[in-house]
């Protein structure tokens, strides 16, 4: 059964504990383990704060308007049913699992970064140090344990504004309480679902815009099914172009 993470936006208090819970689960930068003072200081100074998604912060609380303290939402990967990142990755480094999780395999990522352009929500970021794209993994290692654990942010949330479980049941629950649901089928299907009694755009969320792919590819890659073959060829070509571009860039920067 497909799982989902339901985020009840009305319960979120903007406390940002989910940001740290995610960093703690994944031991993201800037970290202290096994480091000297100087190394900790350097890592901290190189870190870029926690207002925007980055290679260190796979979730952030995003405010719609910096002068309006009432409108914000937890920004993170949607774990889409039809992930643009998966189908635009020429290295097949991203997998959509049947529990819904969309997970990047760092060992396969080649740094092409088409996924970054393809993502309709601007989620994946590139980690220069580890040379891989990173984003929320839906705490894959936690949710697939036996017995399963909740994702770290879901467990840590001080207000218990999130739940993880069977998508259908969570959707039923959400529809019984909230007027606006996103990710639950009306306009988008994903394993991250937002629920609110305030229209979703009002908290600063931008609905999916397929972008970043040339028109040619867009026609080829959607709908999925048969298109994979043709798309594969087109993607491979694009991949070749990109790799060449990067080689040139590398050479020129020396």
């Amino acid at each position: 059964m497909v799982k989902a993470k339901l985020i009840e936006l009305d319960k979120c208090t903007e406390c940002r504990s989910c940001v740290t819970a995610c960093q703690n689960q994944n031991k993201n930068e800037p970290h202290t383990i096994g480091r000297t003072k100087e190394e900790i200081k350097k890592a901290y100074e190189e870190s870029n704060g926690a207002d925007e998604l980055s290679h260190e912060d796979w979730t952030v609380i995003s405010q719609k308007d910096p002068r309006d303290p009432t409108r914000y939402y937890k920004k993170q990967c949607m774990h889409c049913d039809d992930p643009q990142c998966v189908k635009n990755c020429p290295a097949h480094a991203i997998t959509k699992y049947d529990n819904g999780a969309v997970v990047v395999d760092p060992s396969k990522c080649e740094g092409v970064k088409l996924c970054i352009e393809a993502c309709p929500f601007n989620i994946p970021k590139f980690d220069e140090h580890k040379h891989t794209v990173v984003k929320c993994r839906l705490c894959f290692e936690r949710i697939t344990q036996n017995p399963p654990l909740d994702p770290a942010c879901v467990q840590a949330c001080p207000s218990k504004a999130m739940m993880f479980g069977e998508r259908d049941e969570l959707l039923d629950y959400a529809k019984g309480k909230y007027r606006y649901i996103y990710g639950g089928g009306e306009g988008w299907n994903s394993s991250v679902i937002y629920a609110s009694n305030v229209p979703i755009e009002e908290v600063g969320f931008t609905k999916a815009e397929i972008h970043g792919i040339p028109d040619l590819l867009r026609d080829i890659t959607h709908p999925v099914g048969i298109a994979m073959l043709a798309g594969g060829a087109g993607l491979a070509a694009l991949h070749a172009m990109k790799s060449r571009k990067e080689e040139v860039a590398k050479a020129e920067s020396k």
Binding site: D81, K96, D98, N99, F164, N189
Partner: peptide
């Protein structure tokens, strides 16, 4: 409502070709 079931392959038609 939030107990995870076993890892069966079920999902939307779109998801299944990736899943």
């Amino acid at each position: 409502g939030a107990v995870a079931a076993g890892a069966a392959i079920v999902g939307s038609a779109e998801a299944s070709s990736h899943a």
